[in-house]
Design a protein around this nucleic acid. Sequence first.
DNA 1: GAGTGGTCTAGACCACAGC
DNA 2: CTGTGGTCTAGACCACTCA
Lengths: 254, 254
Amino acid sequence: MGQGTLTAVAEPKYWHLRTVLLRTMDAEFSTGQVMPNERELSARFGVARATLRQALDQLELEGRLVRRRGIGTLVAAPRVGVPVGDRESGRARSARGQEWKVVDCTTAAASAALARTLGIAEGEQVHTVRRLRIVQGVTVAAESLHVPAAGLPHLAVVVDENDRARGVLRQLERLGADGESRSVELGVAESAEAALLERPPGTPVLVVTTQYAAAGRLAAVGVSTYRADTCKLTFGESGAAVQVAATSTATAAS
Amino acid sequence: MGQGTLTAVAEPKYWHLRTVLLRTMDAEFSTGQVMPNERELSARFGVARATLRQALDQLELEGRLVRRRGIGTLVAAPRVGVPVGDRESGRARSARGQEWKVVDCTTAAASAALARTLGIAEGEQVHTVRRLRIVQGVTVAAESLHVPAAGLPHLAVVVDENDRARGVLRQLERLGADGESRSVELGVAESAEAALLERPPGTPVLVVTTQYAAAGRLAAVGVSTYRADTCKLTFGESGAAVQVAATSTATAAS
DNA sequence: GAGTGGTCTAGACCACAGC
DNA sequence: CTGTGGTCTAGACCACTCA
């Protein structure tokens, strides 16, 4: 890596530092390579370690860096494009190293918040299936599917957890894509999801909320938390669309 | 606000602090209210100011807080749902306090990155329209629309910037919704977008990349950066979908 | 001017990976 | 054990808002 002296500027040091690091990474490092450690970098650029870390925080938020305790700071691979909400056309998707893995299936009374999002009364029984989405061997998302038990009377007598989960998933597939509507927002992983995603609490995630409607009524709700560092969510008819080298990110804008 | 003594736990102090603050906010503060200042909060909880700020950083990332220099820390309003990618059904949307405002329109040679995303050769001429999306008086997004000049020969002779912008926008509308495909990922606002969004550089944003295809060819690309703190992006047939009180966020999941 | 959040420092100790 | 990133501290100064 090049020299280090930061020319005096009006912008914050950590922001300028981020820019310099970004330039350096693009020029001299490749995916997976470990960068010099934080104490060395901070010394090289003549800043406190905390300031350097602030710059690294930014780059990590952008998905350009991965930091592993005990190992070092690595240049991250480009984000994986993860299809969201295109109808599962059978095996076509599963073939692309894409997999869902059910974690558990519980049936319990709805909390106040959950009841509100489902449009039911607090305390009503709700089936909840938790599952992980795994793409090319990496866990990219944790999902909770909530279906009011009232809509699935035959499941009430099913004791086996796996069977109940299967019943819930089948029900959602039956609903069809026409009644789905989605939202995406930024969030942080709480302890439960954080553990499933194998990340520390507070990890930034993209929260995808799906409402499944049937006959004008809200039939189920799904909440998926995607790792924001490694995922790029893709929407729309992925088949028809043009497939240019879509590696670049917002850099194209400026 | 209640007392402050943090019970000893295994999790990081700042994370526990975040949880306590969140509980306090929900219980004792309402939207827009200013919280005690950072020095007082850190004293009350018996932590260094930097540690408290780490907890506030988390809450700000979740959109629960807004911090204004010289003013204080405020409890944020719930995120605004912003429709993305549903076809502009004429005036129906504009009526809902929704507005686009063109900033400028330039025509220049494509950079390497832009050429790659557009699938053209580097250096080819590209029209770029920058515009802001304003919802209920708040600027929520900055967008750059890139259209290769080759596809719009009649625009080459148009001198007036506003006329050229109009031509580009008309062209995109003509393409129709069938050829659109989108992706969403997390990013940070660079200086240019940051200024347009009236936020400091490094502000987290949701980057929406739209590919406009026509006749199987990529005809244009749009890059929109939405303020992640205030926006919840909504997709799909917003009309048909159920409209339950959709205020709650990921809290419903756990 | 006083009061706020934003930046930066220099140092300490902890938790984890790998030899 | 050494080396890494993760957490936390106590203090300083700056940039901004508002009376």
